[in-house]
Design a protein around this nucleic acid. Structure first.
Lengths: 192, 192
DNA sequence: CGTCTATTTGAATGTACTCAAAAGCGGTGG
DNA sequence: CCACCGCTTTTGAGTACATTCAAATAGACG
């Protein structure tokens, strides 16, 4: 049950058995079926979310009614809504399971306690966040310097396994282009 | 000298006098004149950087030779290159003073020590990073959902004071458009 | 003052979008 | 198991927004 999250922690910190015990005892489990929502706009995100199975999509619907995928979290990824989680204010995002999904949850208060009880955890979340930040910068970089086609290929290279598990529509909304455009980019590729 | 950085710290953590002493004793100071570089591609970023006076621009030059501004750090902001700082690998970015600038620097090793000596500092950098992350998400959001013109107005609203201190060219490269386009957007505004 | 860079303006071009319709695919219920 | 419905993907035609290239103007700095 907790193997995946513990080995995830273990990438950056070594915890004692008691610490592991303490950590896992703060975890809640949540099952979602495909198309179910974990969070919708207006909700407050009260948890840190770890995906053990399946995939969550975080997306935003703009004033024009367009969906924009901010991130996909497959098994072994952390996700959530940092802004809402920290500020306690309502989220702007949807968090939707795009496959049958299992989540592990840590509530905010619990996490604060854990920070005190397991000092290493500060380090762990710092590293997690730093990595997330670097990935984000990379993405901004790409949105500034690349064409739609280049962004698509960069996406394929960085996340080779995503392609099979995501619909064209979802990938397009992550890249910031229309499904039609992505379809054309793909078609073009095949004929070269 | 250290007032600005100490009151910056004070936003999120309360340090004792000894802790402040310890912290400031790890700081190096660096003066840059307008157009001087603090970092260039290939350099390794060895410092956390705090701007006390002036402004640093972080930018990236892509394969086509285009400049893309990733961020501007005015007085009272932290900046750097997270990726290079953490990994010890060469940076892709330029860090250029666009005004006469004063920087406070904390070397990586020193910071690691400070984390141990001043546990609160973990908290401080976590919050700093969380905020930076939220700002970044916001920016990705905008690049996915807004036109050039909308991004420009969002930029003006969020950073009303930047406009006077940044050139059109720099703003354009931050928004991901050409200087010509931004010039036209501005011209259009005036005639309505 | 002269030089260099930044900004503006114009015309032509291109990339990606919108709208529309057809084809493909998957799931559901009879 | 097949037929149907809804959703996804593809394809086409016309359009819009932003780019490129070029040249003129304005501004900054020595």
């Amino acid at each position: 049950m907790y193997d995946r999250i513990l080995s995830n922690l273990n990438r950056h910190v070594q915890l004692s058995e008691e610490e592991k015990e303490l950590f896992t005892s703060s975890i809640k489990v949540r099952q979602l079926r495909k198309r179910q929502y974990f969070l919708q706009p207006g909700d407050v995100m009260r948890f840190e979310v770890f995906v053990t199975e399946g995939c969550l999509r975080q997306y935003y619907v703009d004033e024009k009614g367009q969906e924009h995928s901010m991130m996909f979290a497959f098994e072994d990824w952390w996700t959530g809504d940092m802004y809402s989680f920290l500020s306690g204010k309502p989220s702007k995002y949807h968090l939707e399971a795009i496959e049958d999904t299992t989540l592990l949850l840590i509530e905010r208060n619990q996490l604060e306690q854990l920070y005190d009880q397991i000092p290493q955890l500060n380090r762990f979340y710092r590293i997690l966040l730093q990595n997330a930040y670097v990935v984000m910068s990379e993405r901004i970089n790409q949105s500034l310097s690349m064409t739609a086609e280049e962004r698509y290929h960069a996406f394929q290279q960085r996340y080779p396994h995503f392609e099979q598990r995501l619909s064209l529509k979802h990938i397009a909304s992550y890249l910031g282009i229309t499904p039609e455009s992505l379809s054309r980019i793909r078609a073009q590729r095949k004929n070269t």
